[in-house]
Design a protein around this nucleic acid. Sequence first.
DNA 1: TTTAATTCGGATAATTTTATCCTATTTGTG
DNA 2: CACAAATAGGATAAAATTATCCGAATTAAA
Lengths: 144, 144
Amino acid sequence: MFSKACEYGIKASIFIALSSYKGVRVSLKAIAKEINSPEAFTAKILQDLVRHDVINSIKGAHGGFEIDNTLISSIKLSHIVNAIDGDAIYSRCGLGLHTCNENHPCPVHHKFIGVREELKLMLEDTNLEELALDIKSGTSFLKV
Amino acid sequence: MFSKACEYGIKASIFIALSSYKGVRVSLKAIAKEINSPEAFTAKILQDLVRHDVINSIKGAHGGFEIDNTLISSIKLSHIVNAIDGDAIYSRCGLGLHTCNENHPCPVHHKFIGVREELKLMLEDTNLEELALDIKSGTSFLKV
DNA sequence: TTTAATTCGGATAATTTTATCCTATTTGTG
DNA sequence: CACAAATAGGATAAAATTATCCGAATTAAA
Ligand code: FES
Ligand code: FES
């Protein structure tokens, strides 16, 4: 469903949010360890998220990644997915026609748009705060 | 959402169903042309569908692909997707945890399973007959 | 001001997916 | 039987995704 890059991006963002609530900035190394991802690849993804203003990076000694506490609840999964995978998941035809077009629908169009719309709503409705709180309370997990 | 292979597999199956209703067996070449797919790659996918008993192949002169007319309405999208992409789309954790497990859920598990379940139901509920009839009536299209 | 801890960014490698090519095999027809 | 028209299947190539490596730039602190 999501690319590996996107999966890492989501998990990393949640962990960064969690740390930011605690007031601690986290390093790439700590993130990769926590979400069980390859360090260098994760670095690329974090750079992407920084460029898209999803997370914030501080260079140099004692640097790392963080998110402004006041923004965490307004960052939606859709922002992260969009930054990494683009909007293909929302707009692309499920069977690879040139465009998804109501007036020239592929065979699964009307079956597919319902699921796609639900996915879109879910991503737009889910924010980093709730996901981070679930990790904090031990309700959900970032690895294994 | 689906792999390219799966997209081709679905479109090819619909076209084969349509031809089978007309009583004509179709060649690989005709299929690839109709669904706008690379011929050799499509051949591999069709072989896969044959092995999984989704479609039927006849070798030699005047050979080609067909589906038993009486079976078309009972072949579901889920059969095709399963034959080509396996069951990952149903069972895999959305964030790549080792397994999707209610007792050890990833952060998006409870948000995700709804969408996944709707997708599953859609695939299990949609059969080749209805898709082929839409193509026949000009309600939907296999290419462009 | 030097050093160490970091992120950044370019180059490259490994893996997976997608695509192509060529030969073997099967089968209907003259 | 010989031939032509098909699918089957193995080998290989191209492209995309995932992963690694290494040096440059930045920054806090000794
Ligand atoms: S045209 Fe294929 S999903 Fe809309
Ligand atoms: S554990 Fe991740 S989707 Fe179920």
